[in-house]
Nucleic acid binder design. Structure first.
Lengths: 155, 155
DNA sequence: GCTGAAATCCAAGTGCG
DNA sequence: CGCACTTGGATTTCAGC
């Protein structure tokens, strides 16, 4: 891995600190890695420039915003009737958090959130299945989320 | 929604700003919502206390860390041989980012990352299928990720 | 719950090693 | 690359309304 060779131990420490809690002062990061704040700032800036750090997000509890229900939807595509807008239209459906093209069939996997099953059903019937090129869908409702992180094991 | 009634317009504005870029100065948030920094600070603290803000994360590019391949794995469980450690053992498999219990059968849906297909296969064979209570698995490899966000539509 | 002021602390650039 | 220094700005607390 070309990029990885240039990520050293201190970078890993910095990234681990930011993975735990991203919204802390740069000076605090510097203290934890035992370096001057300006050095740490420079490292973070370079990690951002190199595309290793893609951004910083707040993690919100979906419940209070009427997004307490999660589901995964297998979307089967009919290549004959699909057009170039298909991916965009899928991605823009209300509540869609992830959209992946998956191997094995002409299909997409969608992660979507809604307030409840009724509302999810509405989106699937009225919005998803009316998109040209969508042949069928198969939905798996999430009963319980055991783990849900974006964190990557560094090291 | 009980909690939601107490989230007002300014809270929504603050959350939207933080959803775009969480690691910005509090004073900058205050400017954008037209309030004193101290007032914004107090609002953010309360949103954290109430569990509406769950935390702040850095979003890392998985590629340079040998996690460029993503996959979704349907795990079928045999309730007769499963024990209480099952969920923990699934969640602790290397590369697992999400673990959901799903409706329709005794199954879990796993989102997992690895460097490549060979390494993923290794984890599934040597680690997943050797967990007591795991009956079978069905893996969908991600060819292309169109959208991948944790963002919630506020409004 | 907000503002404004005060004290402390931080950000971000520069020059030096 | 990292550090020390510096200035302009940010954080955080608190009184007062």
């Amino acid at each position: 891995m070309d990029i990885k060779r240039t990520i050293d131990d201190i970078d890993f420490q910095i990234l681990n600190i930011l993975q735990k809690k991203a919204r802390i002062p740069n000076a605090e990061v510097a203290r934890q890695v035992g370096m001057a704040p300006s050095a740490v700032l420079e490292r973070i800036r370079k990690l951002e420039e190199r595309g290793i750090i893609e951004g910083y997000e707040v993690r919100l509890n979906p419940e209070p915003f009427g997004q307490g229900l999660a589901a995964f939807v297998q979307v089967e595509i009919d290549p004959a009737t699909a057009n170039g807008d298909l991916e965009t239209r899928l991605a823009e459906l209300p509540g869609v958090q992830e959209l992946h093209q998956v191997a094995g069939g002409d299909g997409y996997l969608l992660k979507i959130r809604a307030a409840n099953a009724r509302q999810l059903g509405q989106v699937l019937r009225d919005r998803l299945l009316t998109i040209p090129g969508v042949r069928s869908s198969r939905t798996q409702i999430v009963l319980n989320t055991v783990k849900e992180t974006r964190r990557i094991d560094l090291g």
